[in-house]
């Protein structure tokens, strides 16, 4: 039986370590005494010692949360013990080529698909054009890769983070954190 539980959060490259102790929460080594009051709009008022903050938290996926606090908007990813293990394993094994997906950075209407299955694309090359809020936004490849699968079609409406393409990266230095 454990008396402590550890949780790891990431925002970008920054790692935050939260330890739940018997009666306190310790974040990055510092003890916090926090009270949360929830109001009707879903926003919270947080008191941390002598300071008060307003905050809003929204769960965007199983492991991701968006937090609005003051004028900041941050995305925190929670990493549980299982993922920690997988990532550890990933770091030690060379997978070679790995299929990843290109996701829609915003909701919108697909007005033009600019690549075909099997096509090799260069970093910066346009993949498709997404129309949102009256502007055409070209979604460009961030890496040198092969288009393995096209998950969308012309004139289709997509949600934010919806998969657009499955790509196989042609670069050997794969990042092993995040997707």
């Amino acid at each position: 039986m454990k008396s402590k539980a550890k949780f790891i959060f990431f925002t970008g490259d920054k790692k935050i370590e939260l330890i739940q102790e018997a009666s306190a929460l310790r974040v990055d080594g510092k003890i916090y005494c926090i009270d949360i009051f929830r109001n009707s709009s879903g926003a919270c008022t947080i008191t941390n010692g002598n300071k008060t903050f307003r905050l809003y938290c929204k769960k965007v996926s199983e492991t991701e949360y968006d937090i609005w606090i003051k004028h900041h908007v941050l995305r925190l990813t929670v990493e549980d013990q299982k993922t920690t293990l997988i990532n550890k394993y990933k770091k030690n094994v060379n997978f070679g080529a790995l299929n990843t997906s290109v996701k829609a950075p915003m909701p919108g209407l697909i007005t033009r698909i600019e690549v075909k299955i099997g096509e090799i694309v260069q970093p910066g090359q346009g993949l498709l054009v997404l129309e949102a809020m009256k502007m055409e936004n070209e979604i460009r490849s961030s890496s040198n890769c092969i288009i393995k699968e096209i998950k969308v079609s012309d004139r289709m409406t997509v949600e934010k983070d919806q998969e657009l393409f499955i790509i196989e990266s042609l670069n050997s230095n794969l990042s092993n954190h995040g997707n």
Binding site: F7, F9, T11, K14, I16, L18, Q20, L25, V27, D28, K30, Y32, I34, I36, R38, G42, C44, I46, N48, F53, L55, C57, K58, K59, V60, S61, E62, Y65, I67, I69, K70, H72, L74, L76, V78
Partner: peptide, 22 residues
């Protein structure tokens, strides 16, 4: 800010159902 964000997620997941778009 980061610490408070992490603690809020931890606490609210435990105490409340967070509004979820997932």
């Amino acid at each position: 800010i980061l610490s408070i964000a992490a603690i809020t997620i931890h606490k609210t997941e435990k105490d409340f159902a967070i509004e979820s778009s997932a």
